[in-house]
Computed example of a mutant assay.
Amino acid sequence: MRRFALLLGGPLLATEALKERLRGYRLLAADSGGRHALALGLTPELWLGDFDSSPPWLQEALSAPKEVLPREKDLTDGEALLRKALELGAEEVLLLGALGGRLDHTLVHLELAFLLAQKGVRVELTDGLTRAFPLLPGLHAFPLRPGTPFSLLPFPEATLGVEGARWDLPPTALKATSRTLENEALGPIRVRLEAGRALLYLF
């Protein structure tokens, strides 16, 4: 499987566990996401962007092949990097630095994650501490440890159910609700999405 980890510009907790996990991924960075490569002690095979948010010290410190984009364009550096990963045949994408920070960027990353999922690409978003998974109709199994907290968010509406949680839920039509926030896994959970889109958020 062609697995790519994309370093975006949002917050990222660079832990040893994350660094170890990235051994199985091809690493690419978008503009200021390059600072995460330094924190992780890793060198991306490609560093792409217009570099308007990468100060000179960062560009000097990170030795990675660059692809410079024009500043005036109709997409973010992160979206351009996603397109590049798809061109390279990505089948699984880990979006690092995709959550938190600027709300507008976070929302765009979530929408892009759903577009990837619709193309059949496995996708996860993380800030190194929390994780998010876009869910489309079907049955989804997650091997969570007992006690793992999670939320299920209709995005923006969904008919979904969950088993294996402290508060199981039969398939229910949901929209603009807090009913599925702050649940707890008893072990592996199963999410059945009958219609719409949803987001599984682990924290």
Score class of each variant (00 low, 15 high):
95 L>A: 13
9 G>Y: 00
1 M>S: 03
144 L>P: 13
5 A>L: 05
74 D>S: 03
111 E>M: 11
102 R>M: 09
38 L>G: 02
61 A>S: 04
98 A>G: 09
166 R>P: 01
118 Q>N: 14
142 F>E: 00
97 G>Q: 11
1 M>A: 05
45 E>K: 11
81 L>A: 15
176 A>H: 03
101 G>I: 05
154 P>I: 00
75 L>K: 12
200 L>I: 03
128 G>K: 09
128 G>S: 05
138 G>C: 10
124 E>D: 04
116 L>I: 05
161 G>P: 03
71 R>A: 06
141 A>S: 10
183 N>D: 10
97 G>F: 15
136 L>R: 08
61 A>L: 13
127 D>W: 04
50 D>G: 10
184 E>C: 07
53 S>W: 15
119 K>C: 15
9 G>C: 06
58 L>D: 10
181 L>N: 10
146 P>W: 01
7 L>G: 03
19 K>Q: 12
141 A>G: 08
72 E>N: 11
196 G>L: 07
107 L>I: 12
170 P>H: 09
178 S>Y: 04
46 L>R: 06
24 G>P: 06
105 H>T: 13
55 P>W: 05
32 S>C: 09
194 E>Q: 02
6 L>C: 08
141 A>H: 13
107 L>A: 10
95 L>G: 13
143 P>M: 01
100 G>N: 05
7 L>Q: 04
3 R>C: 11
190 R>H: 09
68 V>Q: 07
170 P>Q: 03
65 P>C: 14
168 D>Q: 03
